[in-house]
């Protein structure tokens, strides 16, 4: 891994991020995220009467569930539909570089969006004493969870040229990956599968981190989930040459 290799990823990444902010997508996305998130949080905040951000971090996986497929749906589908994929993949870049750049671009964009929600803990800190451990854990967990959704969504986008199909399939896949480890699913599942389902589910790992418990097990789990789908993505892109 030399300097030129990383530089190329950086240039591709710059182009990806530019694509978000050159179109209205970025602004609509950020607007929807902030309005929905803040509204749902403050709706009950004064009823609880606690300076507690847990309800917000419980909401985030559900908001991301709808918004991350919206970020990833166009990434490959649009390149395929408009034909720019042919131009992109005949540049002297490897498939892996393009996949990583697209993923990092989406992740950077989500991190920017997420950082704008930092007004929330600050506002709450004015009202009462905030426990910062779970807040930091919550943000870290949200970034890893979003990364997993994005890598799964990106992979699905590479399978189709239709953005709407990419959106809906990514939504279903992210939902399945999230829900499989949730408590109310586990109650109904056969006993022998419970530990496995709990381990596979994106949600159960998120609840650990957002409690403020940052366990390397959870971080390794998320990293392998992300890597797996990026790797599959690169294989799909490579396969175009052999069809």
């Amino acid at each position: 891994m030399n300097k030129e290799y990383l530089k190329t990823i950086y240039y591709l990444l710059k182009k990806e991020i530019m694509a978000y902010f050159n179109s209205p997508i970025a602004y609509i996305f950020i607007g929807v995220f902030l309005v929905v998130g803040n509204f749902l949080f403050f709706k009950n905040f004064f009823l609880y009467g606690q300076a507690n951000l847990r309800p917000y971090f419980d909401l985030l996986p559900w908001i991301f569930l709808f918004l991350s497929p919206a970020v990833t749906m166009r990434l490959w589908a649009e390149e395929k539909k408009s034909g720019t994929i042919e131009f992109l993949l005949t540049l002297p870049v490897s498939d892996w570089q393009v996949v990583v750049a697209k993923f990092l671009g989406a992740l950077c964009f989500v991190v920017i969006t997420l950082s704008l929600s930092f007004t929330l803990p600050i506002s709450v800190a004015f009202i009462g004493d905030v426990d910062w451990g779970p807040v930091i854990g919550g943000y870290l967990g949200a970034i890893f969870l979003a990364g997993s959704y994005l890598s799964l969504g990106l992979f699905i986008s590479s399978l189709t040229k239709n953005q709407i199909i990419a959106f809906l399939m990514a939504l279903v896949a992210c939902f399945a990956a999230f829900i499989i480890g949730a408590d109310f699913v586990l109650y109904g599942a056969p006993q022998i599968f419970v530990p496995l389902m709990k381990f596979i589910g994106l949600g159960s790992h998120f609840s650990n981190i957002s409690k403020g418990v940052i366990d390397t097990k959870d971080l390794i789990y998320y990293s392998s989930f992300i890597f797996l789908f990026l790797w599959l993505n690169a294989r799909v892109i490579e396969a175009r040459a052999w069809k």
Binding site: Y11, K14, E86
Partner: peptide, 19 residues
């Protein structure tokens, strides 16, 4: 195929960098 939402200059700069 071109990246429609880029400006000509941005596009050419991107090519120059990646190349």
């Amino acid at each position: 195929p071109l990246y429609e939402d880029m400006r000509v200059y941005e596009y050419l700069k991107f090519i120059a960098e990646v190349r």
